[in-house]
């Protein structure tokens, strides 16, 4: 069997083993189902959820918040990164402020955003944006700064205008950096949305978990967490696809020609 097959099989065995021990433990009375509800109960709960319309609304709302904060964050971060990357003066001026802002644990901004923007969509997106923005910004900034000087000189010798340089040299160079950070950005966007929902909202996966927690329903919390992980895994796969398509020009790491 191939190495990859063996790895997958081992992983599968570990997961299956853990679930089995857990299930049997609950069944034999060794594990208290109040704190650790049996996997079968969790599956039943998720199945129950999936048959209700509310659950799908929750997923839809969290997805919408995630996508909006992801796009807005990437957009603002990229614009900021390009601007500061191309203007050393501005970069020097703004740097300490950016560092300061980035040092604030963003979760703490959640309550403020709820006060400012209310319990609706805006406060969730705002929190997600503050998380995604910095990842996109730092990567774009780096990408713009680390454009190969020979490539740049060559483009200039071919009489590229400033806007041409931006479009054909700086942006593609930064794109590789932004793309390689996409996965982190998506994770950040999900985190922003869910945490903000958890702090105060009327719908979404975070809200679902918060509700379950409010009535000490461990089954609901665990089931919510599982749904959330599946949600992130799906998004991750989509990002993976996008990355592969956009970076076709990059040499494969293993076999360089």
């Amino acid at each position: 069997m191939s190495r990859r097959g063996r790895v997958a099989l081992t992983q599968f065995a570990i997961v299956l083993g853990l679930i089995l021990i857990w299930e049997l433990g609950v069944w034999a009375g060794l594990i208290d189902p109040f704190f650790f509800p049996a996997p079968s109960t969790l599956v039943a709960r998720i199945g129950e959820w999936m048959s209700t319309a509310d659950f799908w609304t929750d997923i839809g709302i969290t997805l919408l918040e995630t996508v909006l904060s992801f796009l807005a964050g990437i957009w603002i971060g990229t614009a900021l990164g390009i601007w500061l990357g191309l203007s050393p003066f501005a970069a020097e001026v703004v740097q300490p402020f950016i560092k300061m802002f980035n040092a604030i644990p963003r979760i703490l901004l959640g309550p403020i955003f709820v006060i400012w923007f209310g319990l609706g969509l805006t406060s969730k997106v705002a929190l997600g944006v503050t998380l995604v923005l910095f990842v996109a910004f730092f990567n774009t900034f780096q990408g713009v700064r680390e454009v190969n000087p020979v490539v740049l000189a060559n483009a200039r010798l071919l009489r590229a205008s400033k806007s041409s340089l931006l479009r054909h040299v700086y942006l593609p160079s930064a794109t590789t950096w932004i793309l390689s950070s996409l996965r982190v950005s998506v994770g950040m966007a999900v985190m922003g949305a869910v945490v903000a929902e958890y702090l105060g909202s009327s719908a979404g996966l975070g809200h679902l978990i918060a509700q379950a927690e409010g009535v000490l329903d461990a089954t609901g919390v665990f089931a919510g967490i599982i749904v959330l992980s599946a949600f992130v895994v799906v998004l991750d796969a989509i990002v993976d696809c996008a990355e592969k398509r956009l970076l076709v020009w990059r040499p494969a790491p293993a076999h360089e020609s």
Partner: peptide, 13 residues
């Protein structure tokens, strides 16, 4: 027109 000594092609094109 100037041809440089080092590699100046855009890798993404």
């Amino acid at each position: 027109g100037y041809m440089l000594q080092q590699e100046g092609l855009l890798p993404w094109k």
